[in-house]
Design a protein around this nucleic acid. Structure first.
Lengths: 209, 209
DNA sequence: ACAAAAATCATACATATGTTTCAAACGCGC
DNA sequence: GCGCGTTTGAAACATATGTATGATTTTTGT
């Protein structure tokens, strides 16, 4: 079956959706295939049928949306570079915004959280993702940033890019922390715009010394 | 036995040391008690005897050093505040430095990595640590930062403190990434001073807009 | 309508896990 | 040396896990 019924999602997609959320909430290792298939109303064997192994499942889960985000990043960065040398703010905007706004559906925040968690785990599957998906992207951005602030040494660019990743990842994966208790003022409510603005303001200031 | 033999560590300490490293390397859930006790040359039952449960083990592992770091932070912050209103740089220095330099032994970087990983996991034990150890500390620092830059709204202070945590955590838990491949220039070699300097420079610039 | 392919299902398998149990060994004060 | 609390030891328990296996149902192409 390759045609999609409008009402009911394919088993494969249901599994990926549930896996995405559960991996994000409880972590990769702590999430059992049984809890995934049960909630997805699929058979346990379905995950091995469609994905082979659990490792392959999370790889496909991450890649299906990360590739969209990263393609959008590259696309926007290229567009910026066509009309001159973009500013640090413009570069960072093209990096942050796709991650936040590509999925306006607030439920998709699970994916961002999963991404953040995964970057802090050291599984073998992560290394594969890094090499194929991350390093080329990072190189393009470091190059662009170097041109935007040539007075900053390449070593410092790398440090600050690293810091910036940390700020962004922590923000997306701990967004619920910001919404609760100690920070009643900063509500998100599915509107990421303030978060993006403040993140750009903070990180661009850090970049420009 | 409560007296410590100079040569040989107590079983309890050996278990904690190994657990700290393995939790940091592979994650909490992925690290089995058997792999810990085997490497610590202890019996499997020893962990349950000394710690009760696995959850309790990681709590004790984290707390034994985090409390030292946090006490040092509070101590340095208080000292700063005794002689006037400290600058953002001084405040952040008192926050970062204890985490990096409290353990000059380079092997203790495992603890920092564990701390970073743990903050991105959502176990029940984490919430307990947050309430008792983290929130009071964060409040003190947010208060100090508010006084250092009164022109910045409290909402922005919270956002920027959040970003700063992300930058720091990602740095300590991914320090090996900085040391390899894409960043041949930035070597650490057990000397955290450059990392601290660059982190302070970056985050203080972000704070001061 | 029918046969081939794709997908689903119940179930089994082998293993790994945290935890418990209870006996043996050990350390120390007397 | 002895007795007692503390610590270690080997093994068992109950359960959870990822994966594999065939049979069965559903879908698809013709």
């Amino acid at each position: 079956m390759t045609t999609v019924t409008a009402e009911i999602l394919e088993t494969k997609d249901r599994i990926m959706d549930v896996a995405e959320r559960l991996f994000a909430e409880d972590g990769f290792k702590a999430t059992s295939l049984r809890s995934i298939t049960q909630e997805a109303e699929a058979n346990l064997a379905a995950v091995n049928y469609h994905f082979g192994t659990k490792d392959n499942l999370i790889i496909e889960v991450i890649r299906r949306k990360l590739s969209l985000i990263n393609n959008e990043r590259i696309s926007r960065l290229s567009e910026l570079q066509e009309s001159g040398t973009p500013s640090v703010e413009e570069i960072l905007d093209s990096f942050f915004r796709p991650a936040f706004e590509y999925f306006q559906d607030a439920s998709q925040v699970h994916f961002l959280r999963l991404l953040g968690r995964t970057l802090h785990e050291s599984g073998d599957f992560l290394h594969q993702l890094m090499v194929t998906d991350w390093i080329p992207l990072a190189d393009a951005y470091i190059e662009a940033l170097s041109r935007a602030i040539p007075e900053v040494s390449r070593e410092d660019i790398l440090w600050r890019f690293h810091f910036t990743m940390g700020a962004m990842i922590f923000t997306v994966s701990k967004m619920d922390m910001l919404e609760e208790s100690s920070c009643g003022e900063c509500q998100i409510n599915g509107d990421f715009e303030p978060a993006i603005q403040k993140l750009i303001q903070y990180t661009s200031a850090g970049f420009k010394n």
